[in-house]
Each structure stands twice: as structure tokens, then as C-alpha cells.
Design a protein around this nucleic acid. Structure first.
Lengths: 211, 211
DNA sequence: TCCTGTGAAACGGTTCACAGCC
DNA sequence: GGCTGTGAACCGTTTCACAGGA
């Protein structure tokens, strides 16, 4: 069905799904593209175009069935299954992420935590025990890890990513402010917190120079 | 000089600056757009186009002077000054962010931490004392806060954002998975961790359906 | 010669507008 | 009448290609 779907489309699909989920609680059984657009922060035409990449889920004159569209979106985003995630880096960011309730709620199970610091290894985080980072390949294979979150220093990121990919990881979410190379077929996302603040700093700076 | 600069351009400028900073340590005094492109994960033409929005900083036949271009970029991104930041939400994410060393390194000083939970109020985080959230306006005004990081539950985000804006905050970085409305002139960025994982989930799912 | 700076072309994503179905 | 699905127009961004200065 679909060919190339842009990153921004995928982000919007996530928003639509969230909107639909709150609609499921509120009651209405159908929703128009207009209504979804407002909740998702975009336009009605955009909603229809986004959805049209994947099929025709609505009824003309009526709108979209809330539970049906939600189910379709879960299927498209592959949220109709659970994902096995490993977290590398048991520092402050790592522990905040581990405790982040939304991951599990959305189907992402953090089933392993690794760290290279012997002082952190062995601690029990809920049902998960912090494991030495040098056992990464073993863990990835044994637990069939598909996604990996890297919350480690920038210097270590490339090496850990290489090893993870070698062991079969398909997607990496990197929190370190460092470019990473992965072979095609492996998916990579960056979260760079400083860069977000820098974008705000730039935007505010612009205001001043306009005035 | 510049009119409208896209979000992606700003992100790339941040990358260029980081590349330049490591070049400053490594030694070379000039750098070509090609070299900068490789380090920033883009193309030479893109580098030149990005920079051309703000002026002509290079020498034809030679390249860009590393310290000069770094200084220009710091000026453009407004990183040639320090920013006063308040963190709202002293939970796990908040505390991880507070301890994140890169913020201070880049000029962002978290000078206040607020929380509505009386159990958290009063604790000392380094030199900063956790303050009741209902004193938000007072704190913003007294400390001349310009940026605010929201690491609080989704339900509270809009109200806190409104109050922050009322008290003079110019930019907000929101970690809660909830759309926020701010008046024009106030800048807003979202970090949605679950959505990043969802994008990976989608991308991996696509591979399978191609095969 | 080398590499920047920049118009022009190509591309891709968003918006428009309407035909088609409920 | 109302709302979806979609080709076409539009618009911003990226890439190309080359003129021009070091």
C-alpha cells in the first residue's frame, strides 16, 4: 500500500491515535477529520491525506469510526504487539526512562538494563537486574531485544551501537549528543535535549532582532 | 538579514557548532563546507545554504575559519549569553534533567526548581531549593526566568504554561505528551519520548511488510 | 586551482478544491 | 447535506551547477 511515509506523517499518526484514545473514553463513536485535526494540532485536509496513504478508513458523509480507526492506526504503527527494549546506561537519564510509565503503557517493555559501571551492576530495578555492559550481545540474543535505548556518554555510543546491531537490534533511540552510523535496515532516532533548548534560544533571539 | 529560518536549519546549525567545537580542539584553523557537512551529517551545499541565510562567513577557495564561524554561530543561536531556566516538576525526569551537565555547559542555568508535591518541596538540589509550584509567578519575576522546562503530568501542563507565560516566560520545553497552546511570541517545543519509540516501531514494521 | 555563495531546478510535503459516496 | 478521498496547485526546502573571489 504505502511507499515512502515522511517522519512528520508518522508523528501525526501518533497524535491522532492519542486523540482517538481519549475519544474512546469520552464516548462518541465517530469522528470527523476536522475534529481529529483540532485535537492533533493540524488541518482536516492533512488528516485525510495522512490516512489516505494507508487506506480508506472513513465513511463519506459520516466520518471515521473511533474504535476502528484506532485499531487501524495501532496496526500501522505496529502498536498491536509488544516490543522488547533494552536500556543501556543506568545513570540518571536511564533510571528516569526506566521508570517512565508511558513506555509500558504503549507496548514497550524494558526487559534489560545494562551498565559498564561495576558499582551499578547487580542492582535490582523492579524485576530487572542491572547487567554488565560487556554481556550486551548475549542479552540481546537471549531476550530477543529489538529496540535499544542508549543513555550513555557520547564517546561510547558508536561502539555500543555497533555491537547492538551486530547482535540483531533493529532500532536505536540515542540520547547522547553524538552522530551515530548504523547500517541501512537499522533505524535510528536521536533525542538531543540541549538542541531543543538551543532552538528556543534561537527563536527568542529572533524576536529581539525583529523589534 | 534573515527572514524565516526553518526548524531543520536551526538543528543543523547546532550540529555545525558542535562539529566546530571539536575542530577547535583538534587544531585545524579552517574547514570546508564538505568537511563540516560530513561531521554534521548533511551535504556541502546544505551547509553553504544554511550559512548564507545569515551572511558570508567563509573565504572562497579556502573555507571557513573555525573560531570565527563558531563565534558567528554562537551569536546566531544566541549562545553568546547565559539563559535563566526554571524546571517545573521534581520527579524522575525533572531530577535527571537537573543533573544533565550539558545544559550548564551550553549556557542554560537551571536557577529554580518547582513542584506541587509538598513532600518534594524544600529539598536542596545543589544550590537550588525545590519551591512550591504555587509560587511560580513570583519566582519567574524575581529570577527573571526566560525559559521553562515542564516535566509534569499532562493534565497540569496547560495551566502551568498559562501561568508561566503570564509571568513573562518566553520559551517552554514540554516533556508531557499533551498539546499546549501558547500565545504568539512565546516559543514552544515538545519532547515526546514515547513518540520516538513509536516512530521506530513503525519503521521496523515497514521493513517487514516490504520483504 | 580551490571552494564559497547563490540563482535556478528539482523534489517533497501541504493545502486546495471538488468529485463521489453515505 | 455532509464528509471522505484524491488529483492538482502551491510553497518551502534541498540539490544542482556555476560564476566569482582567494
Amino acid at each position: 500500500m504505502q511507499k515512502h511515509v515522511s517522519d512528520s506523517t508518522v508523528r501525526r499518526l501518533s497524535h491522532y491515535l492519542r486523540a482517538l484514545e481519549s475519544l474512546e473514553l469520552e464516548g462518541p463513536f465517530t469522528v470527523s477529520s476536522e475534529e481529529l485535526a483540532q485535537r492533533g494540532g493540524t488541518t482536516a485536509a492533512q488528516v485525510r491525506k495522512d490516512l489516505s496513504h494507508f487506506g480508506s478508513f472513513g465513511k463519506r458523509g459520516l466520518g471515521y469510526g473511533v474504535p476502528k480507526l484506532a485499531a487501524k492506526l495501532r496496526g500501522i504503527l505496529r502498536l498491536d504487539r509488544r516490543w522488547r527494549v533494552a536500556l543501556v546506561g543506568a545513570g540518571r537519564i536511564g533510571s528516569a526512562l526506566f521508570a517512565y510509565p508511558d513506555f509500558e503503557l504503549r507496548g514497550f517493555d524494558v526487559v534489560a538494563v545494562l551498565d559498564s559501571d561495576p558499582a551499578k551492576v547487580g542492582a535490582c530495578w523492579g524485576a530487572v537486574k542491572v547487567t554488565p555492559a560487556d554481556r550486551l550481545e548475549e542479552i540481546v540474543r537471549a531476550l530477543r531485544i529489538e529496540l535499544m535505548i542508549l543513555a550513555i556518554p557520547a564517546e561510547a555510543v558508536q561502539e555500543v551501537a555497533d555491537r547492538a546491531v551486530g547482535a540483531g537490534v533493529r532500532g536505536i533511540l540515542n540520547f547522547a549528543p553524538r552522530q551515530v552510523r548504523v547500517p541501512s535496515g537499522v533505524h535510528l532516532k536521536h533525542v538531543n535535549l540541549v538542541m531543543e533548548l538551543e532552538a528556543l534560544s534561537f527563536a527568542i533571539g529572533q524576536d529581539g532582532s525583529k523589534a
